[in-house]
Design a protein around this nucleic acid. Structure first.
Lengths: 136, 136
DNA sequence: CAGGATCCTTCTAGATACTG
DNA sequence: CAGTATCTAGAAGGATCCTG
């Protein structure tokens, strides 16, 4: 079966996983998703999915991220187990960031959404334009 | 080919789509993803993927969302073309929200990530715990 | 019933300066 | 090189009251 085909059963399961139990605050799915909701999380994951990078390389690669947000986002991704941080005791020190197995697995799932976004960006933009002019 | 298998070519394409052109502020992928980064966007999309709901039904379904955020998030999802809003001129009025074709298409891609989150929540939690104790 | 308007709090993210 | 620390503006989100 094509894994892009979604049956109702899995929809219901996801929905239940997100809303069920009356304990939304501790909902597992939302807990994980929340960790990827940052402005830079997806972008940095996508970058590291290509190949490992060092701190400075990532800065140059993503010129409009502040060094504070780069540090912080990498830290969060590392904390959630997606990113491995390896320090090489050179002088001056160099630090390499790479995806863990969990990170690669997660990116495999995230990628569907990124690809969809790339393919359907025009439709979304068009919908926004239409909506905004209709409101005016 | 199993669509969960990622080849390097598509990785690179996504990465380029997210970072290329030196025009990150207008990056299409990030533009679309940003619209789904809200605290409630995924949850409401998942709910509406199951079936259409009325405003009050969604409130009861997601008890910990404020009515303000429910209104606002539905509005954003509608603006991006994911959600259709239909007003029935009854007394008092009733409004039904449902996914558009674009919304269903988007959810098909988002769902991979939600399913991954459900399956791997324990691993993420474990990683966090390990990271936090290692820091202490 | 389905919101709009307001006020307030918290969280996010950017700018800048400094350090091992 | 790879960060930390501090400060601040702005956005996101919550609480409450009001209405067609």
């Amino acid at each position: 079966m094509d894994s892009t085909v979604i049956n109702l059963k899995s929809k219901l399961e996801i929905y239940k996983a997100m809303t069920g139990g009356g304990n939304l605050a501790d909902c597992p799915v939302r807990d994980v998703i929340q960790g990827l909701n940052g402005k830079w999380s997806s972008l940095l994951t996508a970058a590291l999915a290509e190949q490992p990078y060092r701190f400075g390389e990532l800065r140059r690669l993503v010129p409009d991220i502040s060094q504070r947000m780069l540090t912080q986002t990498l830290h969060e991704l590392q904390r959630d187990g997606y990113v491995h941080r390896e320090v090489f005791p050179t002088k001056p020190p160099s630090v390499e960031y790479s995806l863990t197995d969990l990170g690669r697995s997660m990116f495999g799932a995230l990628q569907h959404l990124l690809q969809w976004a790339e393919l359907n960006h025009d439709a979304v933009r068009e919908a926004r334009k239409e909506f905004d002019t209709a409101q005016a």
